[in-house]
Design a protein around this nucleic acid. Structure first.
Lengths: 178, 178
DNA sequence: CCTGATAATGAGTCAGCACTCGACTTGTGC
DNA sequence: GCACAAGTCGAGTGCTGACTCATTATCAGG
């Protein structure tokens, strides 16, 4: 993360446009969408995309980082159950995050960004256990696993709202324990 | 499913080899693996693969059908909980089934094969509810959703055995109800 | 302004992969 | 055996998509 001299303002603007376009495109078509499509939607030549992100994976990594940061913020504003529901509801709209949470496909490692999300969820878990809405023996790893699973499922399965609710109900009951 | 005249025996043998190779290759690399690799591992020229399966999707569909049939059989020999555990344990070894259960990526429709699996799971669910190990209000769709989710999660997350157990414990508790 | 550095452009390169097809080989019925 | 349909072979085709680079346009400091 070495910072050279600051970017020229047109470069900053393009960089931002590219990130926005990439987020939209990858959300719509998944990570397999072409870089050209991103460039087109950003209103920029393809060379420009590669000047800012030398590799497609770099571009992916950049938007993942943004999306994860967003998730951390979302987590801070909800309790554990609401966060689950939020993730599921958003899953379809955010193919990319979900795919990342799953570590699927692309060659990306964002250990610290994921770490921050884990911390946020850890806090929610503590609160829930303090409030007695989640049983004591439940630990963070299985909560993360369930979050990842359920968002994957929701994404690929295209669950409708009632199904979301019923599936989450089972998981919530499980977290609460007997 | 119109059957022409029976295949020559060498053709039958090659067809079987191709299916086996495809199952192995796609399990290892996912559906993105190249058809050439399948041909290589089957010890067959690429043209032969395409003679038997005019399209890559046809090949995918064929092995999916086999794998689903296998799953139905597995289901018949277990109770619902054991079947969950079985799926999770196998997930990593069977990228393809899981991806199919999810309907992800490839253009395949195998409605009846999936239907059979649903029937099998429905039977397990009935039994479990009769035995009181699953709460009455739980319905088939959420059970299927959980199966799909958890196998996705296990696949992409690379869970180790203790994590599998703990995650399943939460879900089982949820199914059993309060 | 002017000028050097910085950025944008987009046609072009290269590699991978699904799929084709004409030449060749092999099983099969007589 | 023989003839011919059925099957196999694998180099070739076309397309897609990541990435490059010489040229051109734009910014920023003096």
């Amino acid at each position: 993360m070495v910072e050279g001299p600051p970017l020229r303002i047109d470069a900053q603007r393009n960089r931002a446009r590219i990130l926005d376009a990439a987020e939209a495109v990858f959300a719509e078509f998944g990570p397999r969408a072409s870089t050209e499509e991103v460039a087109r939607r950003a209103g920029v030549a393809i060379g420009t995309v590669f000047r800012h992100f030398p590799t497609k994976d770099d571009l992916l990594a950049a938007i993942m980082k943004r999306l994860l940061a967003q998730l951390v913020e979302d987590a801070a504003q909800r309790d554990l159950f609401a966060f689950f529901a939020h993730l599921v509801a958003q899953a379809a709209a955010k193919k990319t995050v979900v795919d990342l949470l799953a570590g699927s496909g692309v060659n990306i490692r964002l250990p610290d960004a994921v770490g921050h999300l884990e911390e946020a969820v850890a806090r929610l878990l503590e609160q829930a256990q303090a409030a007695g809405t989640v049983a004591a023996p439940v630990r963070l790893p299985e909560v993360m696993a369930l979050l990842a699973s359920v968002s994957q499922g929701a994404l690929h399965g295209g669950w409708d709202e009632p199904l979301q609710a019923r599936t989450l109900a089972v998981i919530f009951a499980g977290l609460k324990g007997t």
